[in-house]
Amino acid sequence: MSKAILQIENLSLSYNGFMAVNKVTLNVAHKTIHSVIGPNGAGKTSLFHCLTGVRRPTSGRVLFDGKEITHQPAHRRTCTGLARSFQITSLFQNLSVQENLRLASQGRDGDRALVFWRSIAGRREHMEMADSIMERLGLTQKANIAAGDLSHGQQRILEVGMALCGKPKLLLLDEPTAGMGVEDIPVMTRLIADLGKDYSIMLIEHNMGIVMSISDTITVMSQGEILVEGTPAAVRTDERVREAYLGEAA
């Protein structure tokens, strides 16, 4: 087995003594879809924040592509190939779909984008990247529409596309279907499954249906700790998972 793209070692995060994440060790393998699920308050979002750099973990390490990133600030992680989507849609609302994606692609330049004497046209690759992502998302028709004028489902898809523009080695998706209508969910599911062929994906998700159908590996969290890890089939039949979820379902 090749070395994992993301290695989480003994990661803990506590808020005033409350252990939101408790000694979690987890590896995401190359070009797989690895989902993290669990009932509310299981620590999924806290774990996610440690990975994106929003929160500093209390202890433990995060290795990305073999390099330690535990204390790197958020914008630097993006440059190294770790891209994220937001649970709450966060787009440049008044700018066109194409410009949203172009800006996201240009973000890889970091401070090199400070050039104020060059024209945008000088960096063709960002425009091409935007066009190819639009193609993949099925948003080419909407290229010149302001992001804020898209339907909710399309905005969620664009949100994922923004993360793709960073040519990520790993995609962190935080509840991509949050707040989506029933009719939009299959579109998103298909998109993520499709992306799984080319990218390594870590998916934080509440919706069991999606997770079971597209994941290669599933980690179930409960009360800040890892409960079970395995293939969808194994997780589906696991007693402990059923118990953890039954508590919530009741």
Binding site: N94, L95, V115, F116
Partner: peptide, 21 residues
């Protein structure tokens, strides 16, 4: 320029601009 377009992006949504790098 790339700079100007990024400045507009920051005006629109600073958190997002930060997140894309």
């Amino acid at each position: 320029s790339p700079f100007g377009s990024t400045l507009i992006a920051i005006r629109e949504n600073e958190a997002r601009a930060d997140a894309v790098g």
